[in-house]
Design a protein around this nucleic acid. Sequence first.
DNA 1: CCTTGTGAAGTTGTTCACAGCG
DNA 2: CGCTGTGAACAACTTCACAAGG
Lengths: 232, 232
Amino acid sequence: MTLLRSPRLADGTARGIPDATVARLPVYLRALNALAERGVLSCASGELAEQAGVNPAKLRKDLSYLGSYGTRGVGYDVEYLRYQIAREMGQTQDWDVVIVGVGNLGSALSAYQGFSTRGIRVAALVDADPQRVGTTISGIVVSPVDQLQAVVTERRISIGVIATPGEAAQQVADQLVSAGITSILNFAPAIVQVPEGVDVRKVDLSIELQILAYHEQRKTSTTSRAVKEVGA
Amino acid sequence: MTLLRSPRLADGTARGIPDATVARLPVYLRALNALAERGVLSCASGELAEQAGVNPAKLRKDLSYLGSYGTRGVGYDVEYLRYQIAREMGQTQDWDVVIVGVGNLGSALSAYQGFSTRGIRVAALVDADPQRVGTTISGIVVSPVDQLQAVVTERRISIGVIATPGEAAQQVADQLVSAGITSILNFAPAIVQVPEGVDVRKVDLSIELQILAYHEQRKTSTTSRAVKEVGA
DNA sequence: CCTTGTGAAGTTGTTCACAGCG
DNA sequence: CGCTGTGAACAACTTCACAAGG
């Protein structure tokens, strides 16, 4: 079970990048895109780190897992680094996702502008409600749940998004898995169990607010105490 | 700067609960609510841990930061533990939040059913677009941005949600802070800078999918390798 | 010089394993 | 006996501080 971490494989390719680093690479990518848009060609770790909201040393260590893409005494070439991170993140291709559940949240996700520039494409929408099936949302016709397998196979979708009520989440997860999905983003307020080999990430809107409320409570009750940044 | 951790203050009250634990307490709360609804009166750490999707030892350690609320040889009283966690999380009161930006995502958040049962109440909606100001969404009239200060003060709101495009995020954050908000949940794809004492949490939809895409890419490229749960 | 890349130290989080207690 | 609560070992992550090198 103690799967040891290999920072680098024998073939020299950077592998086994720490989870915490993987979670930050898209942030760096976004910061680099912002710099590129402003016409900046090169930047030092300090500038990029500030844009990304992290410590410069952390940024450099993160980048070191990918390779040595900087120039000592100078910094990083914006376009080159942008490409290297994008490649590492698999953004040289587009990733098709299927959203299950087109209520308020599912509809908002379908319309979300930010996906397309990050290599994410909403390729299909699915809902259990016959009233919603057949309607068009953000230019996509909503399919019935029993078409999930067909849609996933046909469009080679490997990522599924659960945007249903909590009660339906586990069943939807099971259906996604049996349709061949191996990565799930779960917005439903429920823990879903999946077989080995399937990745699940969870975004829970209530929990984020509850965490803020906890810190808020402590701020007002203990008036004399230093406050530090809330862990992300 | 080296703010040392005090698990417990002199007064005996549990304090300085680790961030990782605070982030999981709402999950335990949800699991306990589910058990209570099923009429379960008592449970062992193993059952609760399974419901919550964590290791039993981790659950017990998390609970130990709050106090000793279990009974050895038996387990935990569902209702009692539920109350203790809720109290620690500040859920004995309701927390009013203001959502800035009522586009697709902001509207979906306003309509989100899951908040009310978790002590979160959407108390006000604000938007910069004159077209949206004055309209009613989920029973709340949208206020103009220049009313933010008044709304926050009047309703004693301490938590703000940014659901605007990325370009507007920093400005909105500044406005929230000057209106007296000290906790921000940021859905915009941008890093916002805030003064000391203000907490910011970030939820980035694209980044979550990009992280899944990264793992997905690695699954398909290296066909012979064990896959482990993606870090939340 | 100046900034990267990185060992080493420090901090936080997780898991084990068992003493303690109902 | 069984399950909690927790010290101690372990693992992951962050930060420091400085050698390396353009």
